[in-house]
Simulated scan of single mutants.
Amino acid sequence: MCPPRAGLPTVAVLSYINLLNYMDRFTLAGVLTDIEQYFEIGDSSSGLLQTVFICSYMVLAPVFGYLGDRYNRKQIMSCGILFWSAITLVSSFVPKKYFWALLLTRGLVGIGEASYSTIAPTVIADLYVGDKRSRMLSIFYFAIPVGSGLGYIVASKVADLSGDWHWALRVTPALGLLAVFLLVFVVTEPQRGVLERGSERELVYTSWVTDVKDLCSNYSYILSSLGFTAVAFVTGTLALWAPAYLFRAQVVQGTMHPCTKATCNSLDR
Score class of each variant (00 low, 15 high):
Ser85Val: 01
Val90Asp: 02
Gln50Tyr: 04
Gly47Ile: 06
Val52Pro: 06
Val186Ala: 04
Val123Gln: 14
Leu161Trp: 10
Glu113His: 01
Leu103Ile: 06
Gly68Val: 14
Val171Ala: 03
Asp160His: 05
Ala179Met: 03
Cys55Gly: 02
Gly42Leu: 05
Ile76Tyr: 04
Arg135Phe: 10
Gly163Glu: 09
Leu177Cys: 10
Ala143Ile: 14
Gly112Trp: 06
Val154Phe: 03
Gly107Ser: 11
Leu103Arg: 04
Gly147Asn: 15
Asn72Glu: 11
Leu102Cys: 04
Phe140Met: 10
Gly130Gln: 03
Asp164Gln: 10
Ser85Leu: 03
Ser115Asn: 08
Val123Thr: 15
Leu178Thr: 09
Thr51Asn: 04
Gly68Gln: 13
Phe93Thr: 05
Cys79Ile: 11
Arg135Ser: 08
Ile76Ser: 01
Ser46Pro: 12
Arg135Ile: 11
Tyr71Val: 13
Val109Phe: 12
Ala179Thr: 06
Leu178Lys: 09
Val129His: 10
Ala61Gly: 04
Leu103Tyr: 04
Lys132Phe: 11
Met136Ser: 15
Ser138Tyr: 14
Ile139Lys: 12
Arg170Ala: 06
Val109Ile: 15
Lys96Gln: 15
Phe185Gln: 00
Gly149Asn: 02
Val129Thr: 14
Ala61Met: 13
Ala61Glu: 14
Ser162Arg: 04
Thr105Ser: 11
Phe64Asn: 07
Arg133Gly: 07
Leu108His: 01
Pro121Cys: 01
Phe181Thr: 05
Val52Phe: 11
Pro173Asn: 04
Trp84Met: 01
Val94Met: 07
Leu150Lys: 00
Phe142Ser: 15
Asp160Lys: 02
Pro173Ala: 05
Glu113Leu: 05
Ile111Asp: 02
Ser156Asn: 06
Gly80Glu: 12
Phe140Thr: 13
Lys74Leu: 14
Ile111Val: 13
Ala61Leu: 10
Phe181Met: 06
Phe99Ser: 07
Thr105Leu: 12
Arg106Gly: 09
Phe64Pro: 01
Val186Ile: 13
Gly42Ala: 10
Asp69Phe: 12
Gln50Val: 09
Ser85Asp: 02
Ala168Ile: 03
Leu67Ile: 05
Ile81Trp: 09
Val52Glu: 06
Gln75Thr: 15
Leu103Val: 08
Ala155Gly: 01
Leu49Tyr: 13
Leu48Val: 05
Leu102Arg: 03
Phe185His: 08
Val184Glu: 07
Leu182Thr: 03
Ile139Ser: 11
Gly107Pro: 07
Ile76Gly: 00
Val154Ile: 13
Ala86Arg: 08
Cys79Phe: 14
Glu189Met: 07
Val146Ile: 15
Phe93Ala: 11
Pro62Gln: 13
Glu189Ala: 09
Pro95Ala: 11
Ser117Asn: 06
Leu177Pro: 09
Thr172Pro: 01
Gly112Met: 09
Thr51Asp: 00
Ile111Trp: 07
Leu102Tyr: 12
Val94Arg: 02
Ala114Val: 09
Ala155Glu: 07
Pro95Gly: 10
Ser156Ile: 11
Gly107Arg: 13
Gly107Asp: 07
Val129Leu: 09
Thr188Ile: 15
Pro62Gly: 12
Gly110Thr: 08
Ser78Ile: 15
Leu137Lys: 07
Ala114Pro: 03
Gly42Tyr: 12
Asp69Cys: 06
Val171Ser: 07
